[in-house]
């Protein structure tokens, strides 16, 4: 039976006059990968901070691993957090970081040492184990950061923009680690600005904008709501003149281009691309505005 690892109902939070979260309802089944997709300032980090006990919500009910969020100690025993800024100690070495977190998680010195060696191996950091983290690349830092969250087995893992700033190769390596965790039964709750990341990893996606959930579903469900290809019309200086959503079939794309040919200025060019994150937001947030207007 699938039970909810994380449940939010009517979650609200304001900082001063600014409503960061304006009534969030979400449910995340245990053992799944859940992606919270949204632009900067949408409230993603605030949700992660509330779920991980760092920030107290103004109203609404939140349950994490079956505990109300106000039972902080019980919640903390069920979660680990990899925040947006690499939560590593730069002065210490990779190995010292892992052993420190091991000791703080209740392992004995010997257990912490063995666990550190295992995780260094898994995350391909053994060669740099004795180097100070200050000298690490962004990808190495992120791998260590994730390793630190896995020192002991917590059923729920929060990842706040885990691959922001990473190159494509490091991003893929991190994705593999995250998938592996979910196969082992860990519930992964991650935030991202990248549609592709949510698409690649998540069993379910919620899109948030302006502190509200504007869409929810699997990657395929969301894409079908946004539509297919986008045709860009560019002038001779390569500046975009128009962007036209064109559906997903060849027939629909051809029809769009045929219509464009009639009106496009001499010398203009076209480019066909997949919908970008911005298109998603434009589509979803306009839809939401139209729906609420009715």
């Amino acid at each position: 039976m699938m039970t909810a690892a994380i449940e939010m109902k009517g979650l609200r939070k304001a900082f001063g006059q600014h409503n960061v979260l304006d009534g969030i309802d979400l449910s995340v089944p245990a053992g799944s990968i859940f992606a919270l997709l949204g632009p900067n300032g949408a409230g993603k980090t605030t949700i992660i901070n509330i779920l991980s006990t760092l920030v107290t919500p103004d109203s609404g009910s939140v349950r994490v691993a079956g505990h109300d969020i106000t039972e902080k100690e019980s919640v903390k025993r069920s979660i680990s957090l990899t925040g947006q800024f690499a939560a590593v100690d730069e002065v210490l070495t990779a190995e010292e970081n892992l052993r420190m977190i091991g000791r703080l998680s209740g392992l004995t010195k010997a257990e912490a040492r063995i666990r550190a060696a295992e995780l260094l191996e898994i995350f391909d950091l053994t060669a740099s184990a004795r180097k100070r983290v200050k000298t690490f690349s962004g990808g190495m830092r992120r791998r260590l950061d994730l390793a630190l969250s896995l020192v002991v087995n917590r059923p729920i893992l929060f990842l706040d923009e885990p691959t922001t700033g990473l190159d494509a190769q490091s991003r893929r390596a991190l994705w593999d680690h995250i998938r592996q965790l979910a196969r082992n039964g860990v519930t992964v709750f991650l935030t991202t600005q990248y549609l592709e990341e949510a698409d690649q990893l998540a069993d379910a996606i919620a899109v948030i904008a302006g502190g509200r959930v504007v869409a929810e579903g699997t990657a395929d469900q969301l894409k079908s709501r946004i539509g297919g290809e986008v045709v860009e019309l560019r002038d001779q200086q390569d500046e975009i003149i128009r962007e036209i959503p064109a559906g997903s079939s060849i027939r629909e794309v051809k029809k769009t281009i045929d219509e464009l040919v009639l009106t496009a200025p001499e010398g203009s060019r076209i480019n066909i691309r997949r919908p970008s994150m911005e298109d998603v937001f434009v589509a979803l947030t306009t839809q939401e505005r139209e729906e609420s207007a009715i």
Binding site: M100, R103, G106, V152, N153, Q180
Partner: peptide, 23 residues
């Protein structure tokens, strides 16, 4: 394969202080 380790007892207050002092 990421090996799983059993959820440990929380670190004692003494151990926590020792770790942070060492750090």
């Amino acid at each position: 394969m990421i090996a799983q380790i059993k959820p440990a007892q929380s670190a004692s207050v003494g151990a926590t202080h020792a770790v942070f002092i060492q750090r």
